[in-house]
């Protein structure tokens, strides 16, 4: 059976600690380069701060983790890649990026409305010896290619191998948990199969508090957000001008 892996991120639980960002970077061998900045760095998982634009005690803030949304419909990046370096895995719904195929034209980055794609502006590098601390399950990407969240595909691969070794066809859901989900200290990130109506994540995605970013673009992201705060849920609504400026921090 083909799965549709996705997430429901409960923004009311997110304290903006950044554990997901670090866990993601560590799992995926993302380098920490002194030359990189917020605009040129590699942050497949990026927590951003938002506010209701209020002042003083009226002000409210929240944190929103931004990662590849794994768009299901007319996936913008998949459509534009000239050489099929991006594809939607039919079995999992994961939008996969193949760095070995990528020529670094960055057209996919201009296509992605979520800015969830990152270019390797530099050769990856670590201080002397630190390469011994890299995760053996994930290949290091060379300079000049695009990368992004692949829902810790290496973990899925390991789970499949484990299932195969045990003679099972299906993986045990407990064996496949992306690093950010595992790391979240408040259990704000829920991961599961959206195609399975019994999966709690699938059920949560239908909650009245659930929403997706830029829903009107109709790319059907598989990353849902959830909040009881109306001003946070308003993020999904079509922008209406000034509030757009007010909301960013």
């Amino acid at each position: 059976m083909s799965a549709r892996y996705g997430m429901v991120i409960d923004l009311d639980r997110c304290t903006g600690c950044g554990a997901c960002m670090l866990a993601c970077a560590a799992e995926n061998n993302v380098p920490s380069l002194p030359q990189a900045s917020a605009r040129t760095g590699l942050t497949p998982m990026l927590v951003r701060k938002i506010s209701n634009g209020g002042e003083g005690s009226e002000r409210r803030e929240a944190f929103i983790p931004i990662l590849c949304m794994h768009c299901e419909h007319e996936t913008p990046c998949v459509h534009v890649c000239p050489q099929q370096a991006v594809e939607v895995d039919k079995a999992t719904g994961i939008v996969m990026q193949m760095p070995q195929r990528c020529l670094g034209c960055r057209y996919c980055m201009t296509a992605c409305p979520y800015h969830a794609r990152y270019f390797n502006w530099w050769d990856p590098a670590w201080p002397k010896g630190m390469e011994k601390s890299l995760n053996p399950g994930v290949a290091v990407r060379m300079r000049g290619v695009v990368e992004k969240c692949n829902l810790c595909h290496a973990r899925l691969h390991a789970a499949k191998e484990k299932a195969a070794a045990a003679g099972k066809r299906e993986i045990d859901p407990a064996d496949y948990i992306p690093a950010c989900v595992e790391a979240c200290p408040t259990a704000a990130i829920h991961f599961g199969n959206l195609a399975d109506p019994r999966d709690p994540v699938s059920q949560q995605s239908h909650s009245p508090d659930a929403f997706r970013l830029l829903e009107h673009l109709d790319t059907q992201p598989k990353v849902y957000y959830k909040s009881k705060e109306p001003w946070v849920r308003a993020l999904s609504e079509p922008n209406s001008g000034p509030s757009m400026e007010a909301k960013h921090v």
């Binding site: 459509h79 534009v80 890649c81 000239p82 050489q83 099929q84 370096a85 195929r101 990528c102 020529l103 670094g104 034209c105 960055r106 057209y107 270019f119 390797n120 060379m142 300079r143 000049g144 290619v145 695009v146």
Partner: peptide
Amino acid sequence: IDVGQPLRAWFTFWHPNTHSMLTEVT
């Protein structure tokens, strides 16, 4: 110069994505 991996630019001819406008352009 603009592409990150010019030595792989020919991949577009080998693995063309016919849906991409950039393939057509190339």
